[in-house]
Computed example of a mutant assay.
Amino acid sequence: MPTPIESVLSQSQRDSLEILDFIFHIIELDAGKEEKVEFLDEVSLQPKQKKFFLARLQDILEGTQYVFKPDAVHLKEKCQQLVAERHNLNVISRQIATDFADRHRNQMAEGVFVVAVVRFLASANEWKKLILLVKMDKSASFSYSRKVEGGRKIAVMTDNPNALSETKSSIQKSAVIDADSYFAWDVLAYDRKTKPRLTDYFKGFLGVTERQQDAELTRATHFAVKKWARGLDKDAIPPGEDAAGYIGRAQNYLKDHDTFETDEFINAVVKDEDPARKQAMSGQLREALAAAGVAGQQFTPRPGSLRPAECKQHYLTSEGVTITFEGDKEAVGLKTETLPDGRERITIETRKLTLKN
């Protein structure tokens, strides 16, 4: 059996995503404030709506990685059935939606619960399937029509209480389930209310536990950036930049942020005034993080999980001078530049210089 893939989907795999089966059921509140589900038999998606849900799937692929608990088989079995018994989409999706609604002890916002089967091209002529689950909140909206009476233009407003917003904020909870055991993770999940964590009832509904702990992800991020930065071609990076700059900014991000967000992290690490070069390097770093199983994950950085020696960076001159520092070199007053004759100039600004024995 092939070794499960550590990362989330690559860009080419994302571009190949297709919706195979799609339905949603309506979550409403009755007069007694009890949750209930109104089941639908079919949902007809127009091209614009397909594009919207595929875009939301792209967003969900940035969720935290989870694995199914060994004793929690309900949802896992249902997802396997969705793939094996596509003709039973209505029956199985109703069971999943009902279980989701029943687990919510407090009042739930009205909306829809989406169940979809999608596929992506894992490699040449090899398609793999994913299950997409999304709880979308309903948001009332207004539409208008125009008419002319007595030479006057009049707008007539109409209330649409069952509108679904085409914005990311309408996604309350979401999960992507690996139906083919292609990846090392079973579930990618996102919870708008408690990100990067999941509410207890949503976690119970999924039957999952975190695949990796925060400390492990912090270390994986640190070493992925180190490996990537030290392998860069010096001629391909901005003047005055080097591996130490990228590594240091990565360390500072992990120290200064409560939540790791992939795009935000990459933007903090890759500093470049050349847009094309920045885009290329950002893409390279994203691939390095994906290979390490970090890209797309949301977690709380634990910089204390890194040993002091692992955070230290060292410059050694040909004259035998060693410079040791931690974090962003500019933040500690250190600058380097290459002179026209190929020599290196190092500048250090400090409030005080102390001679150590």
Score class of each variant (00 low, 15 high):
residue 290 A to G: 10
residue 277 R to G: 02
residue 155 A to Q: 09
residue 227 K to N: 14
residue 58 Q to A: 07
residue 209 T to M: 14
residue 92 I to L: 04
residue 99 D to V: 01
residue 157 M to G: 07
residue 206 L to Q: 04
residue 233 D to H: 07
residue 248 G to E: 08
residue 349 E to T: 10
residue 228 W to R: 00
residue 338 T to Q: 12
residue 105 R to V: 04
residue 238 P to C: 04
residue 160 N to F: 03
residue 134 V to A: 05
residue 38 E to V: 14
residue 73 V to Q: 12
residue 247 I to D: 05
residue 271 K to W: 09
residue 224 A to I: 07
residue 227 K to C: 09
residue 83 V to I: 13
residue 328 D to L: 03
residue 274 D to T: 06
residue 216 E to W: 01
residue 123 S to R: 11
residue 120 F to A: 09
residue 154 I to Y: 00
residue 57 L to S: 06
residue 143 S to T: 12
residue 198 L to Y: 06
residue 345 R to H: 05
residue 34 E to M: 10
residue 302 R to N: 14
residue 32 G to Q: 13
residue 279 Q to N: 05
residue 202 F to W: 06
residue 191 D to A: 04
residue 241 E to V: 13
residue 63 G to Q: 00
residue 36 K to W: 07
residue 98 T to V: 08
residue 94 R to L: 02
residue 102 D to F: 03
residue 129 K to Q: 13
residue 23 I to M: 04
residue 130 L to W: 00
residue 177 I to G: 06
residue 33 K to Y: 12
residue 218 T to S: 11
residue 319 E to P: 01
residue 126 E to L: 11
residue 52 F to M: 12
residue 82 L to R: 01
residue 47 P to V: 09
residue 241 E to P: 00
residue 22 F to G: 02
residue 203 K to E: 14
residue 190 Y to R: 11
residue 64 T to K: 13
residue 346 I to G: 03
residue 94 R to N: 09
residue 254 L to E: 10
residue 56 R to L: 13
residue 144 Y to I: 09
residue 287 E to W: 01
residue 262 T to Y: 04
residue 228 W to E: 09
residue 289 L to W: 03
residue 316 L to P: 00
residue 119 R to A: 05
residue 65 Q to D: 07
residue 353 L to N: 08
residue 10 S to M: 09
residue 254 L to C: 02
residue 178 D to P: 11
residue 309 A to K: 15
residue 209 T to L: 15
residue 55 A to Y: 10
residue 341 D to I: 05
residue 184 A to D: 14
residue 195 K to F: 10
residue 43 V to R: 10
residue 329 K to Y: 08
residue 100 F to Q: 00
residue 241 E to K: 14
residue 80 Q to W: 00
residue 19 I to G: 03
residue 278 K to H: 08
residue 19 I to W: 04
residue 233 D to A: 12
residue 144 Y to C: 04
residue 312 K to D: 12
residue 72 A to P: 04
residue 85 E to W: 01
residue 304 G to D: 15
residue 40 L to N: 14
residue 184 A to I: 00
residue 145 S to V: 08
residue 162 N to C: 02
residue 147 K to T: 11
residue 138 K to D: 01
residue 129 K to L: 06
residue 321 V to F: 07
residue 279 Q to I: 06
residue 334 L to P: 00
residue 172 Q to L: 11
residue 252 N to M: 11
residue 164 L to K: 09
residue 316 L to V: 14
residue 153 K to D: 11
residue 85 E to R: 14
residue 42 E to L: 08
residue 135 K to W: 06
residue 31 A to D: 15
residue 236 A to W: 05
residue 294 V to C: 02
residue 230 R to I: 00
residue 144 Y to T: 15
residue 181 S to D: 14
residue 138 K to C: 04
residue 70 P to H: 14
residue 131 I to W: 01
residue 82 L to P: 13
residue 155 A to W: 03
residue 119 R to N: 13
residue 150 G to Q: 10
residue 79 C to A: 03
residue 312 K to E: 15
residue 97 A to I: 03
residue 113 F to Q: 02
residue 191 D to V: 08
residue 306 L to F: 07
residue 297 Q to Y: 03
